[in-house]
């Protein structure tokens, strides 16, 4: 739940059901969680799957400290990071990933994979993800490949001169 809330902070999405706590509902449409962030994070190919429990524990400790510092009373029925509202989660993630934070590299790598779940579906075959309506690739407008799984774009150019060439261009087409 804590890591879902983290991924949802990176690319926010709509609540999956009424009362969804991990996903804050800060943006319409599916976000990183619906895109499969947890599935990607839990895949050992990423190299961070073994440390996810520690990530969640550390994130909740940071959330407790953040709440104490800002006089925020956290509900106790969910982990502390989940209990933060979207603005609080965002502010804390910004702190943890800022230059100079001693654990920055860890949080950046977690953010990187959360982001990749949404904008490249790195845990799925891209063609399959598109066919299944993957929320990130679909929202970005990534087109579907051909029947052989490959992309081809027969139309690709305006096909006419659109600027003057640099006057010093050499015959090879390079700068002088």
């Amino acid at each position: 739940m804590t890591l879902e809330a983290f991924a949802d902070t990176i690319i926010p999405g709509e609540k999956r059901w009424p009362g969804d706590r991990a996903v804050a509902g800060a943006a319409p449409g599916g976000g990183a969680v619906a895109a499969g962030a947890i599935e990607l994070l839990e895949w050992d190919a990423t190299g961070i799957s073994g440390g996810l429990g520690d990530f969640a524990r550390a994130l909740n400790e940071h959330a407790l400290a953040y709440a104490a510092q800002h006089g925020i009373a956290l509900e106790e029925d969910v982990p502390p990071f989940v209990a933060l509202d979207h603005a609080g989660r965002t502010a804390l993630v910004a702190l943890l990933t800022a230059p100079g934070h001693p654990e920055k590299d860890l949080w950046v790598s977690l953010a990187l994979f959360s982001n990749m779940a949404y904008d490249s579906a790195a845990h799925l075959s891209t063609a399959d993800a598109l066919a299944a309506g993957h929320p990130g690739l679909t929202a970005m407008g990534v087109t579907r490949p051909g029947a052989d799984g490959l992309w081809r774009f027969p139309a690709y150019s305006y096909g006419r001169p659109l600027a003057d060439l640099h006057p010093d261009t050499t015959p090879s087409g390079s700068p002088a």
């Binding site: 690709y156 150019s157 006419r160 659109l162 600027a163 003057d164 060439l165 640099h166 090879s172 087409g173």
Partner: peptide, 29 residues
Amino acid sequence: HQGWEDATYAGGLWAAACRHAGRTANPVP
């Protein structure tokens, strides 16, 4: 040695924006 017919939409857009700003632009070998 690419010509304008090789420039993609993105390249053409960049060229047109450069020209609009009074700059030159070259298809890249």
